[in-house]
Design a protein around this nucleic acid. Structure first.
Lengths: 259, 259
DNA sequence: AGCCGGGCTTCCACTGGGTGGAAACCGGCA
DNA sequence: TGCCGGTTTCCACCCAGTGGAAGCCCGGCT
């Protein structure tokens, strides 16, 4: 931008992204001042940017005056390959899995050092979980997270083990050595599990989903009540689903477009 | 912005939105030149903006060099009240409806002069339809569209009848007078229907969903094969679902946040 | 091999759109 | 009535944004 910039080097584009970044799962509706605070921008600047974004319907203003993500961004987001390709291909198999086990079924990818949940299939009869599509959870405390971390590039894994492992429950693995050993086991047997490591009362099983070249690009998992079916019994169904998803992904072009 | 602008008056923010607007359902992956053409921006400008958006992960670059919507925008989109409120509240009832009728179930809102599909519940056993979550279809040729248009503000309705009604099939209603009469019928009996007006071989039934004040803010509908159950028989189930969604919406705060 | 065309990337002189502190405004509350 | 937090408007300053042009890369055709 130009003018009396307080932080030279910050482009208008980066400021627009900072405004969008002010919104997250726990803050889906913000006042103008909130946005300014959370994005670190001066109030006047925020005001102008937000007004333009509202005009372009990227943001919307709720009845109470607070701002939310607008229709345009919602539409744009649904065009992401995460949604149109990975989710679209996997969904039928996830639903099939759900009707077979009647427990929460998850599809997640690794994004940086977190598990990013792409889809969640659930119903009244399942244990409520804190995961949701678009949500993020730690890699070391979730089933899909362990499956993703176990097959992550060595440098990513090493970097993750160097960072402190946040404790979520009394059962969370916070010792790097123990996590490394567990991930080795995951690679050996081909599936991961958790016992109340993220949420007390819930345990999970997960397997990796590979692309045509064999690289792990996602994971699918089942989360249920600790006292339910022996987790191990769910593995075959998961492996079958993962295989089918991988096969369908292999013969689905990266981006199916009409052009 | 500044410099030798070709189109004075266009702000950087509006250009960023133009870049995002270049993506749509039929163009989910674009080359740099495509984006420049479709957004009407000079190539060099597009190049710079896109690079910044990729750095901020609002866009992503596919293996073939084309650009797609990035993870950040996908995450942001899921925070829209359309998703977190309307869809979240309605989904269980839509699924219930689906298991009862085993035909495509839709949830849509009116956005300008189009029906914007917020959610679609389907399965193998349903007729394939061209609708999809995040997609747009004409108001006058779809079940949910007619339900939305019938209860739209008079000025919106009048404006819509003044515009030419695009013909989609031989059965599409393209005569304003006939559409107006049909919408009057919809208001009288409380539900809308279509007979192969959007797609040959498909017909639909839809009802409005009201908010606490009685204003119509969405519509739900069922689309099935022309030869299936008599559409009329589906009306009671739809009305029940719409009522329940309305009730749940009424006691769900506009934006549930943790703040 | 050599040519060609389309797409991508980089460069840089010019300038008007962006900036943000400050002041006014608004509405709820004590 | 006065206070307070959030919102909106104003405007003098000036540097970030602009985009034509030139060069690069790659793949297809001759």
């Amino acid at each position: 931008m130009a003018g009396r910039t307080g932080t030279p080097g910050a482009s208008v584009t980066s400021r627009v992204l900072a405004v969008l970044g002010a919104f997250d799962a726990t803050h889906p509706a913000l006042t103008l001042s909130d946005i300014a605070r959370r994005s670190g921008l001066p109030l006047a600047t925020t005001h102008r940017l937000v007004a333009e974004l509202v005009a372009g319907r990227a943001l919307a203003r709720a009845a109470d005056g607070r701002y939310t993500i607008g229709v345009r961004l919602w539409e744009a987001g649904l065009l992401s390959p995460l949604h149109t390709r990975l989710r679209e291909v996997a969904l039928p198999y996830l639903q099939e899995l759900y009707t077979a086990v009647r427990e929460n079924v998850h599809l997640a990818v690794r994004d940086g050092d977190e598990a990013l949940y792409v889809e969640k299939v659930t119903g009244h009869r399942s244990v409520p979980t804190i995961s949701r599509a678009g949500g993020r959870l730690p890699l070391h405390a979730t089933g899909v997270g362990k499956a993703l971390l176990a097959y992550a590039p060595p440098e990513v894994l090493a970097a993750h083990l160097r960072r402190p492992l946040r404790r979520c429950t009394a059962y969370t693995i916070t010792e790097p050595g123990r996590l490394a050993r567990e991930l080795a086991t995951v690679r050996e047997r081909g599936w991961a599990r958790t016992h109340e490591e993220m949420t007390l009362g819930s345990c999970s099983v997960a397997v990796p989903v590979r692309d045509a070249t064999g690289a792990v690009l996602a994971a699918i998992g089942v989360v249920g009540h600790s006292l339910g079916t022996t987790p191990r019994q769910l593995v075959p169904a998961l492996l079958t689903a993962a295989d089918r998803i991988a096969a369908r992904l292999a013969d689905t072009p990266p981006v199916a477009d009409t052009a």
